[in-house]
Design a protein around this nucleic acid. Structure first.
Lengths: 144, 144
DNA sequence: ATAGTAAAAGACATTATTGTCCGCTACTAA
DNA sequence: TTAGTAGCGGACAATAATGTCTTTTACTAT
């Protein structure tokens, strides 16, 4: 479904969200440990997410990654996914055909449309805030 | 969503189905041209599909790939997908966590369950026969 | 029988993804 | 000002996926 990079990214942003709700900035090491991801690789992913303004970072001691107060409730799964994996999940043909469109559809075009719209809606309506809440309340988990 | 190998596989099986409905066996070259896929790579995929009994092959001149009469209406997308990509689409955690299950779910477990069940149902109820019919009637296309 | 055709199988090549390492830059606190 | 911390960026390494090539095997029609 998603690349590993994207999965690490989502897990990381959930953790950052959770900590930002407590007013904490978190360092790379802490994030990698909390979500059980390779540290250096995670750094790359976080850099991408910074460039796309989903998260912010501050250098130096007491620095780390965080999410702005006013963004805490608006960041969605879809933002992270499109930053890391691009729009392939939404746009690419299910059978990998170059020009698959409603006028010249691939054999599974319509079937995939339904699934993909479901997925798109889910990604666009699921906020990182709500996912972080699940972790905070102990209903869901971020590692293992 | 699916690997390239899986996409080539699906396209190929649709084409083979279409031709088998006409009582024709089809050679590798013809398949690769019809579905616009790399020939040698497609050969590997067809071998897998043969080993899993989804399609059959006959060697020698007048040989080629085909689907048994009695299977023509029963082969589903799910069969091809699980042969080529395995069960990852159905079983693997959406966030790549090792032990994600209903008792210890990842943050997006429930959201993904819904989507995945939709997908699973779709794959299990969509026959290659029906997809081949769409191509035959000119409603859908297998290349470009 | 044998010549020709087509799939099977294994070795190899290329590319994309994943992952690591290290020096550099920015920043903060003392 | 400076020492230490933490993210940034580029180069590099390992692995997995994709794709190719060549030889062998099986078969059929003549």
């Amino acid at each position: 479904m998603f690349s590993k990079a994207c999965k690490y990214g989502i897990r990381s942003v959930i953790y950052i969200t959770k900590q930002s709700q407590l007013g904490r900035k978190v360092g790379l090491k802490e994030i990698a440990k909390a979500v059980d991801s390779p540290e250096a690789f995670t750094a790359k992913i976080l850099q991408k997410l910074c460039r796309s303004k989903i998260i912010k970072s501050e250098k130096g001691p007491t620095g780390g990654f965080f999410i702005d107060e006013d963004k805490l409730h608006s960041v969605c799964l879809s933002h992270v996914v499109s930053t890391i994996d691009g729009d392939t999940v939404y746009n690419d043909c299910g059978l990998g055909m170059k020009s698959c469109n409603p006028k010249k559809p691939c054999p599974v075009h319509n079937q995939f449309m339904v699934i993909r719209n479901n997925l798109k809606t889910m990604l666009e309506t699921t906020t990182m805030h709500s996912l972080a809440s699940g972790v905070k309340s102990g209903l869901t988990f971020l590692k293992r």
